[in-house]
């Protein structure tokens, strides 16, 4: 019947519209559902595996675990990392390659995590920081090893 179909259409339309309005009305009166964080005041807790930038871990004696093997430099797909090495005199008179500067270009990094995977000594890791904006591009080129730091004992 045409009239029955017509009334059915009107009824279905109005009930489905009311269903939608019930949802938004519920959100309007239940402010605890709000998911917005007031960012600079309240910061979100980031997941553990969040990739913000590459950092080098240092312990309390200002020692790092980087041997300067350049595995990360080779693994990097867009030449973000540049390892500068030096020859260091060992106590037994032998010379040994050691890290001088770990240059990290944040402006080129895509946070792909390949350098961290490639590192044989777990010297670098991903940090949780994400507020990277600066006024000068040069500030994005970072030296990751702290000044005066040296290789940790026993890391080959």
């Amino acid at each position: 019947m045409f009239i029955v179909d017509y009334i059915k259409t009107v009824y279905n339309a109005s009930t489905s519209l009311l269903k939608g309005m019930r949802m938004t009305g519920y959100y309007f009166f239940n402010h605890k559902e709000i998911i917005t964080l007031q960012y600079p005041d309240v910061k979100q807790e980031l997941p553990e595996r969040f990739r913000g930038e590459v950092v080098m871990t240092h312990d309390e004696k200002n020692e790092h675990r980087c041997t300067g093997c350049t595995a990360c430099e080779l693994a990097c797909p867009n030449a973000t990392i540049k390892i500068v090495t030096k020859q260091e005199l060992q106590p037994d008179g032998k010379k040994k390659k050691a890290l001088e500067t770990f240059v990290y270009h944040l402006e080129l990094c895509t946070m792909c995590n390949l350098c961290i995977v490639a590192c044989p000594t777990d010297a670098i890791k991903m940090a949780q920081t994400f507020e990277h904006s600066v006024f000068d591009r040069n500030q994005l080129t970072k030296k990751l090893n702290a000044p005066g730091s040296k290789l940790m004992e026993g890391v080959e």
């Binding site: 938004t24 009305g25 709000i34």
Partner: peptide, 13 residues
């Protein structure tokens, strides 16, 4: 404000 609360936001504050 109404739109914000209905979309689970805070709106101008």
């Amino acid at each position: 404000k109404v739109s914000a609360y209905m979309q689970i936001r805070l709106g101008p504050n």
